[in-house]
Amino acid sequence: MSQISGQELNRNRVVDWALMVYIVLAYAFVFAPIAASFVFSFNSDRFPSIPLGDFSLEWYRAVAADPLVWQGLTNTLVIGVVVGVVSTALGFGAAYTDYRYKFMGKQVYLALALLPPTIPVIILGLAMLAYLSRIDLSGRAISVIISHVVVCAPFAMAIIRLRLSQMDPALEPAAWNLGASEWATMRHVIIPFTKPAIFGALFITMAVSFDEFAVAWFVSGLNETLPVKVLGFLQGQVSPRINAIGTFVFVTSMTLVILAQILLSGRTAAPRSSTVDKE
């Protein structure tokens, strides 16, 4: 109640409107290129120009008819799913280790585990190429998977770690105390508790892998993923097909990210049992 009256008291219509306009402009700036790409993907004209030509699905048809695009898409999807699963599993292990154990050099362990996303992707891509070719793993789908796991696992770890930090520290020992072995506790308490974060991490890491270009470009060889393929198209000729692919990639990524968002924001504040209230 006091919250509402407080809000009412502090309201200033002019400031409200100014902030609203500011937000609209900021979003417009951010999303204009994507929106343009989306609009032109349905435009019959060869070159993006205004006024628009007719509504047309011909660029989607052209993309769908291109076996190279299908191959890129298949690569991207397979790699994305494998990367998502592996990164989430690794991230979960790393996050649980951090939650459960105290050990010498834990700060170093954490710093190293969370480091990869801070390395410039060009450097990471080059290093990956040099390393993977030395152990004879470059130019294959597995090369992209390995490289993407390196990039994605820290995201998964960060997401799952956040969830574990919201867990009542007594929950795990309480399960042991009720007769659950450590494995049973993992299965019946830790995993159910972190489940939203596990799926959130799965979708986010898939989305990251799906969009990632630089590292994939270095290590993919002939097994190009869709973003790498797009660059190939651009180098050859500018075609509205790019817009069609771009729209598809954007929608897919957004779907994954929004799914993750729903999972992670839905009742993340785990109810603590120790609230004071009356019967």
Binding site: P173, F193, S273
Partner: peptide, 15 residues
């Protein structure tokens, strides 16, 4: 067989 009632109660929120 030494069950404990915890200060935070530690009830499982997902059950």
């Amino acid at each position: 067989d030494t069950p404990m009632v915890w200060q935070s109660l530690a009830l499982f929120p997902f059950l």
